[in-house]
Structure formats: structure tokens, C-alpha cells
């Protein structure tokens, strides 16, 4: 697999695919799911909520962090809210106190027997600040992530594969009195996730996910002020407890 060329190709396939499926969006007839899930692309009952809390652990590439291994877990809260016509809202907050990301998007899902899929579009705003240890820096930005999720329901386990395009639409950073901003939307890269959702104990359900992002910019590394304009690999592990 070529990390340099794959993201662009997959992004094109993703965007074309979304246009092809869009006309069917209002006609989906999948059965709403009552099984606890946050990533599985099943239609949700109207006005139903699904909520999980947990953590996400991202490992930035050594080209950026060099000798230091920066791997701080981030608090991760995730919620879905069912709307009519197999559409649901998808909101997520990830925070490490000094940097946080909030996203909100909509998905349209369709189920065919044990298979299901969803088309979605999320918009995220993130910010970070560092004012200690020789840093007087802060940054913020907007990110859009069109995405497709495909799922398969086993008897007790929900398996999902999600593909996202990462579009950085704006970025501003401040150092002391100096500001640098960019409002040019650009394709930053792709992310591929594999998620397992299953019962854990008693009535508790668990989300376990692995996300492989190949991107030129990852919001969590803003404080490293990367200048690389090449795809770097960010593995990410997510653990969530569905409430």
C-alpha cells in the first residue's frame, strides 16, 4: 500500500460514491436498530439517543515527535440522535484539556439484512493552547470529514469499517503577538477505521476501535507546528463504554 498515493484515490472514490448514493437517501427502508452502537451504520429510531464515553489514544509519527513519545489519552464522548428518514445526528467531543475537538454531523443509514451502510458528513472545530514552558501559543481550525461506513451484524457483535476523507478548511495559529492563518480548504488525507461493538458485562456494551489516519495534518499535533506537506501515519485506538 502506498501511503502517498492511496488517500487521494480513496477520497475521489468516496466523494463520487456519496454523489451516487445521495438520490437514494430519502428512500432508505432499513429497520431501526435497538442494539447499542455508536459507529455501526444502522438506522436509529426517531428521537432515540445513543451515548458513549471513553478515551482515544493517538500516536503521532516519529518524524514529528522525534525522540519524545507523546501519547496522552484524550477523553472521548460520543452521541447519536435519531431523526426521520433513517437520518441521525452524530456528535463527538475529544479533549485533552489543552486541546479539544468538537464535531457534529449527519448520517443517512440503510440496512439490508445483516449488512448496513451509512453516508455521513461531519464538521469539526478544534482549538488548543499552550502557555507554559516557553510556549505562548494557541491555535484553532475547522475540519470537514465526509465518510462512508459499512457494517455487518453478528449475533452479539457489530463490526464496522469506516472510511473518512479529512479536509482542513481553515487553520489559525498564534505565537506571542504573531498570527498565521490559512483559510484555504485543502485535502489533508484519509482515515480508515475498524470498530467492534459488543456486550461487555451485564448490560454494558463496549466500543473498541482502531483508526489508521494517513494525513498531512492531524489537529492533535498543532503544537508541533509541522511543516511537512506529506502523508504521515497516525494510529489511533478508541475505547468507549456505551451508556
Amino acid at each position: 500500500m502506498s501511503a502517498r498515493t492511496l488517500p487521494g484515490r480513496v477520497a475521489r472514490i468516496l466523494i463520487v460514491g456519496m454523489f451516487l448514493f445521495a438520490p437514494y437517501a430519502t428512500f432508505g427502508q432499513g429497520e431501526p436498530s435497538t442494539r447499542p452502537h455508536l459507529f455501526f451504520p444502522s438506522p436509529l429510531q426517531e428521537q432515540a439517543w445513543m451515548v458513549s464515553v471513553g478515551f482515544t489514544l493517538t500516536t503521532p509519527p516519529r518524524d514529528l515527535t522525534e525522540e519524545a513519545a507523546v501519547r496522552a489519552p484524550a477523553f472521548d464522548a460520543h452521541a447519536l440522535y435519531g431523526l426521520p428518514a433513517n437520518i441521525y445526528l452524530d456528535g463527538r467531543a475529544i479533549s485533552q484539556v489543552v486541546q479539544s475537538r468538537f464535531s457534529l454531523g449527519a448520517k443517512w443509514a440503510h440496512a439490508i439484512d445483516r449488512f448496513s451502510f451509512a453516508l455521513g458528513y461531519d464538521v469539526a472545530w478544534w482549538f488548543g493552547f499552550l502557555t507554559v514552558g516557553g510556549f505562548d501559543s494557541k491555535a484553532r481550525g475547522w475540519e470537514n470529514t465526509p465518510n462512508i461506513t459499512v457494517g455487518y451484524a453478528l449475533d452479539d457483535v457489530l463490526l464496522s469499517v469506516k472510511v473518512e476523507a479529512i479536509l482542513t478548511t481553515s487553520y489559525s495559529s498564534f505565537n506571542g503577538e504573531n498570527e498565521v492563518s490559512s483559510d484555504q480548504g485543502r485535502f489533508s488525507g484519509m482515515a480508515y477505521s475498524f470498530i467492534i461493538e459488543q456486550p461487555a458485562w451485564k448490560n454494558t456494551h463496549l466500543t473498541l476501535g482502531f483508526r489508521a489516519a494517513y494525513t498531512k495534518f492531524h489537529w492533535m499535533t498543532w503544537a508541533l507546528f509541522s511543516t511537512f506537506d506529506r502523508y504521515l501515519f497516525y494510529p489511533e485506538v478508541t475505547v468507549g463504554f456505551i451508556l
Binding site: 500500500m1 502506498s2 501511503a3 502517498r4 509519527p61 453478528l154 452479539d156 457483535v157 480508515y192 475498524f194 467492534i196 459488543q198 461487555a200 463496549l206 473498541l208 476501535g209 482502531f210 489508521a212 506529506r230 502523508y231 501515519f233 494510529p235 485506538v237
Partner: peptide
């Protein structure tokens, strides 16, 4: 499927996901 099985699957995926170095 047990939690342990799920973790093994995810660990295998993490190991498989490539991080090809640019050159």
C-alpha cells in the same frame, strides 16, 4: 466473541496497517 478476541483482532489490524516511510 469475547472482548479478548476483539482486542486480538484490533491489535492485528494495528500491526498490519502500514506506515510506509516517504523517501
Amino acid at each position: 466473541m469475547t472482548i479478548r478476541s476483539s482486542l486480538v483482532i484490533l491489535a492485528a489490524l494495528a500491526a498490519w496497517s502500514c506506515s510506509q516511510d516517504a523517501e
